[in-house]
């Protein structure tokens, strides 16, 4: 075997070994990423309208708290998560209604209505929103989200349980 031949044979072996390693890494690596992020690629099917309150019970001008649960099938388990919000009747007109989410836009703590301060207070990082959900002070970057709603003939407030962010 001549010297140059020997070197090329060695190089061939090195190259083949590297190629095999790369091939196996790729065939394992690419599906692995899809495997790991798989749950993030599923579309969220939550969104059946739920009835959360009757307008009869909701006072005008004061936020009325409500909550509802959404059951999601997460893998082998079904999880019921509770969400909350406030119904605000701006006037006696049944159409003049705003449904706010109680999820603080800063880091998802739940805000409470504070009568004295006349605003929604977030207990986590001292933030405050006004009655329409606009930021008064504190770290939240945007106003409270809201839910799309409908009011049926009997005055039931029916919301689509997908929070819509402002701005």
């Amino acid at each position: 075997m001549s010297g140059s031949n020997h070197i090329s044979r060695r190089d061939f072996m090195k190259l083949t070994t590297g190629a095999i390693g790369g091939f196996i890494a790729a065939v394992i690596g690419i599906p692995s990423i899809a495997y790991l992020i798989s749950p993030a690629l599923r579309e969220d099917k939550a969104g059946k309208p739920v009835s959360v309150a009757n307008l009869e019970n909701v006072p005008v001008g004061k936020p009325y708290p409500f909550s509802f649960t959404v059951t999601r099938v997460n893998g082998w388990e079904r999880t019921s998560t509770a969400y909350g919000g406030f119904i605000l009747r701006r006037s006696a007109d049944p159409a003049d209604v705003l449904v706010l989410s109680s999820r603080c836009t800063h880091l998802s703590c739940r805000v409470n209505w504070n009568d004295e301060a006349a605003g929604f207070v977030c207990p986590c990082h001292d933030a405050m929103f006004d009655i329409e959900g606009k930021v008064l002070y504190g770290p939240p970057p945007e106003p409270l989200g809201h839910f799309e709603h409908e009011i049926d003939g009997e005055g039931n407030v029916i919301i689509t349980p997908v929070e819509i962010k402002e701005g």
């Binding site: 599906p31 692995s32 899809a34 495997y35 798989s38 749950p39 690629l41 893998g75």
Partner: peptide, 8 residues
């Protein structure tokens, strides 16, 4: 349900 779960 998991992508490539059958393969892994």
């Amino acid at each position: 349900d998991v992508q490539f779960g059958w393969l892994v």
